[in-house]
């Protein structure tokens, strides 16, 4: 019980008056508490994430087994295949698609989050529930719903021809735009939520101060609100970019399989080509790219977040 007490009031343990041995006991107690709190989660991650991941990544240096699996003969072939223009183009194309989606999500998500943060408390809750509401329905069903909406004889085309706006059904499905639309729809909430958290936290007095010092609302936004919400922007961008990059369902269903993303490529190596080593190598490449991105995000958010903390 005492250790929990200490956790709750972190300042208490550093009191300069405590003697040597009680202090040491306290430190030990705190370590035990940390272990008790962190242990299960970390243990779970190590056993069920790190170990399988390490196994998978070890495949990258072996040769493909004819029936799936690996033959334990080392080879560098998997890595040299990575720079094959065929796969490189898919990789770059995926980054482009994910980046466009992330940008669109930011442009759409920021005003939404901003507006929600300024709502009265009760409406805030309702708006936030509305944002996460789509997650209550299965992802696949929501993606298929887009097919029903956008297909040649689908609802949108029926409505448009019905009111006489168009004569021939538009080709709304199975192109790059549909893929971005689908990804944007799926991951927009992941942009709105961190942005909301960042904007909502801002001290309204800072805005008032800015206004008092003669800044117009636009200036206040650019110089005060936006920089201070930058950590939320970066988090939101990561939350959207990462799953977009790995998605393989949307290119297949909404893109009609006419173009593929790196997620499809990896999935196909495992489930169709029976080439686990190359699939693992592709996965490693994606992970490496994302780790670099994470470091960038951590660095950027330290730069912005640091100043934010000081000012707040």
């Amino acid at each position: 019980m005492t250790t929990e007490h200490d956790i709750a009031r972190p300042g208490a343990a550093t009191g300069p008056l405590s003697g040597r041995s009680p202090r040491r006991a306290r430190v030990l107690g705190r370590a035990a508490a940390r272990l008790a709190f962190l242990g299960p989660g970390v243990g779970y991650l190590i056993v069920l994430l790190i170990v399988p991941l390490a196994l998978l990544l070890s495949y990258t240096i072996f040769r493909r087994g004819r029936f799936g699996g690996v033959v334990y003969e080392t080879t560098g072939e998997n890595f040299s295949r990575l720079v094959d223009p065929l796969y490189l183009d898919v990789f770059l194309g995926s980054i482009q698609t994910a980046a466009i989606t992330t940008l669109a999500a930011l442009l759409l998500g920021y005003p939404t989050a901003y507006a929600i943060a300024r709502l009265p408390r009760r409406w805030k809750t309702i708006a936030l529930v509305a944002v996460v509401l789509p997650f209550w329905t299965n992802f696949l069903i929501r993606v298929y719903a887009w097919v029903i909406l956008l297909s040649g004889p689908g609802l949108v085309n029926e409505a448009l021809t019905g009111i006489g706006l168009i004569d021939e059904p538009l080709e709304l499905l199975y192109n790059q735009g549909t893929i971005v639309t689908g990804l944007l729809y799926s991951y927009l909430p992941l942009m709105v939520l961190p942005l909301y958290a960042a904007i909502e936290r801002l001290d309204p007095q800072l805005r008032e101060a800015s206004a008092n010092l003669g800044a117009r609302p636009a200036r206040t936004f650019w110089s005060v609100t936006l920089p201070l919400s930058m950590p939320g922007v970066l988090t939101g961008c990561m939350f959207v970019f990462v799953p977009c990059l790995g998605n393989f369902v949307i290119p297949e269903i909404l893109g009609g399989g006419r173009s593929i993303m790196v997620g499809n490529l990896i999935r196909d190596q495992f489930l169709k080509a029976r080439d686990w080593p190359f699939g693992a190598t592709l996965a490693l490449a994606v992970i490496a790219a994302l780790v670099v991105l994470l470091f960038l995000q951590a660095w950027a958010s330290r730069v912005y977040g640091g100043t934010g903390e000081r000012r707040a």
Binding site: R64, R66, L86, Y87, D89, V90, G93, G257, R258, S259, I260, N264, L265, D268, K272, A273, R274, D275
Partner: peptide, 19 residues
């Protein structure tokens, strides 16, 4: 097709990746 089946994998990747 044994090892030759990778040729079909590549073919299908090439076709679906082309713009």
């Amino acid at each position: 097709l044994g090892e030759a089946s990778t040729k079909y994998t590549r073919l299908s990747t090439e076709v679906s990746a082309s713009q």
